[in-house]
Design a protein around this nucleic acid. Sequence first.
DNA 1: GTTGTAATGAGACTCAGTCTCAGTATACGT
DNA 2: ACGTATACTGAGACTGAGTCTCATTACAAC
Lengths: 163, 163
Amino acid sequence: MSVLRPRTADATRPSANAHLDLHELVETHLRRIDQRYTSGRQAVVQLLATSGRPLSISDISSAAPDVPRSSAYRHLSDLQRAGVVRRIAASDEFARFELAEDLTHHHHHLLCSNCGKVIDVTPSPAFEATVASMVDDLTLEQGFHATSHALDVIGHCASCQAT
Amino acid sequence: MSVLRPRTADATRPSANAHLDLHELVETHLRRIDQRYTSGRQAVVQLLATSGRPLSISDISSAAPDVPRSSAYRHLSDLQRAGVVRRIAASDEFARFELAEDLTHHHHHLLCSNCGKVIDVTPSPAFEATVASMVDDLTLEQGFHATSHALDVIGHCASCQAT
DNA sequence: GTTGTAATGAGACTCAGTCTCAGTATACGT
DNA sequence: ACGTATACTGAGACTGAGTCTCATTACAAC
Ligand SMILES: [Mn+2]
Ligand SMILES: [Mn+2]
Ligand SMILES: [Zn+2]
Ligand SMILES: [Zn+2]
């Protein structure tokens, strides 16, 4: 039983709490590769789930100082192997991490080329349908097998436009 | 006068050779920031111009062993400052470099998540118009000022599908 | 409890990328 | 042609995000 994520479920509303569902799903994913859902991993997943944006290792370290850096790296890598976490490359030198789209929803990123900030944006279904068919076209003649796509918008965030 | 790129122009056809145009354009960009277009920089630009795909430092080093690594890094960084080169993050840990779209044309990338290979693909104008308007939509409500976009398709290249 | 396996923390280590500095090349003014 | 200022270069030291090792600890199963 973890202080970080008390799992005392409210039995009267089995599926009411999205957080419980998320963590149970994560646990399933980990179990599938014979891994346990320990408190350190829970802490990392909890951070990613509530941040609203991809987090760097520094973000994670300062938000959860009790999780050692080397463990945080390993947690993220294990969670990635389990299909729970996705690593993304931002405009700066630091990798960012977010929950896999299977556990959240498909979305894209605005990357600030000045400060490195990454902002989540969710496009309309119509947009996505268009993108998907375009991706098929691009992909076909190269003998390339597409598994996903990423539409990044590069520019300057609101705070960096003051400069 | 460089052995790497003889600039003896054929005066009878002033604009017939695209390579000459490219290098003159690069020189202009460099001059704009008080930089010279030296032979090492020429070698790097020549490689990027003829490769047909983004190159890693290793690619560049093995294709031009006479250019020291530290100089190659510096050339790329200087050329990037001059707006001639663009750095892109692939699926692996290694950065890739390509000529800026101002000097070539707008295009996108297929990233192999297995071997890290990057393939250039050029979408239709209709596609691009769609993407551009979608980008505007995504961007508007965030107070974000977009300067460019990148549509990456992640998957497995033809050679890696045999596995 | 015993045993096998997974997880952890501390810190050594790797290596892509950056920085320093002494020496060299190039442009420009006279 | 010469002097001067500034850009450029190569060698190698250095940085630091990310990885690996290993001794120890937690967990799950029987
Ligand atoms: Mn995201
Ligand atoms: Mn490209
Ligand atoms: Zn910013
Ligand atoms: Zn491949």
